[in-house]
Amino acid sequence: MTMRLNVEHRTHYTYNAPVPYGLQQVRLRPKSRPGQLVETWDIEVLGGQVEVAFEDEHANSVDLVSFTPGQSEIEIICRGTVTTEDRAGVVGPQGGFVPLWLFQRSTDLTKPGDGTAALVAATTRQDDDLSTLHALSALVLSRIPYSTDQAAPDLTAEDVITLGHGVCQDHAHVFITAARAMGFPARYVSGYLMMNDRVDQDASHAWAEVHVPSLGWVGFDVSNGISPDARYIRVATGLDYRGAAPISGLRYGLAGEAMSVSLQVQQQ
């Protein structure tokens, strides 16, 4: 089954004072790969300009955007069409130069602690890795139900376990941390999901991928309790949110920031 998805994703930052200098690293260019064909994709920046574009170590396409000096707003607009295919979440073998052991490293956001240990202990080991990981995914969701209360971008996996609920990003962090503790290479994925019942999506989506010897990378969307299908567009991967964040920036001055996102994903 394939789908042809149109995306329009606007991220709008406003500041309560002019920003003298600022930079944003933008990881918002999906790439063609087995199961995902990017037909068109454009990034437009209002109030800034693209300084350079490069591929990072995870082969993410990155744009470095600078603020036009003295602006008090900047908007990054992505528009594109992507054809996707349902491959039951299987992404395939690790390509490029990144050694698999790197995906077993813990990061500040994915440092295992007692909460992770308890999750791992409570996960029933199945005969095959895939079933074990699905069991882990279900366990994470049952212990940490989806809730947008207190959503914050910088919660660690252990914070989320203590809090007892979370959003897709939190689920991905907890799942990655536990999968690594079980010995699997695991990574964070940011991307888009077309929710069936609506055109306007709340926000961009996040899930996890785990490397299993027989299949390579396999996706797990803990929040929705499934492996990604044709409704998912993979945009960037990293060891955690910070490595795959759609936009991460730095700016001079003391201006306060407000952000709004509008995202439409619809089937053509």
Binding site: L23, Q25, E51, V52, A53, F54, D56, L64, S66
Partner: peptide, 11 residues
């Protein structure tokens, strides 16, 4: 800030 990006882009 950003020097690694310029570096990785060959600048």
């Amino acid at each position: 800030p950003g020097i690694m990006d310029v570096y990785r882009a060959g600048g």
